[in-house]
Amino acid sequence: MLTPESLKKIDREIAKYPADQKQSAVMAALAIAQEEQGWLSSEAIECVANYLGMAPIAAYEVASFYNMYDLKPVGKYKLTVCTNLPCMLSGGVDAGEYLKSKLGVGFNETTPDGKITLKEGECMGACGDAPVMLVNNRRMCSTMLPEQIDKLLAELE
């Protein structure tokens, strides 16, 4: 189910914890699986669960609890905009609206070409750089005023 590379990465995470605590690596393992496959199918979740010797439903509890896991397929790029109060005061909500109108989709929707999924996020601990948004859970973009947003969209191919 998962590639040897992914399993190697997972093994590296397992090594961080006591030998009898493999389950501690489940968050990392799910993240790795999602990075490889774009989202977390139930097959992927079960594969991780079996690899770590935990009940599939226990792994599912984790996958469904934390915000950054996608239990449904998402676009090639997932744009998460922080709209929490500190960002809102500096344009976080406006940035969300701006993106909606530019992409013609609402939050939790994907552009027809399957390229971009727009999501509303909670505080990313970067309020000083508001408006901020996150690309594919990994790349944080700061002070995203209209022209920066335009630049980002142009760059996302």
Binding site: S42, A55, I57, Y60, E61, S64, F65
Partner: peptide, 20 residues
């Protein structure tokens, strides 16, 4: 001795269910 039910999701959307 076997976890067949779990509580998925969080907040008021928490839901008791089996795996898929």
């Amino acid at each position: 001795g076997v976890m067949e039910l779990g509580m998925a999701n969080r907040n008021m959307h928490s839901e008791i269910q089996t795996f898929v």
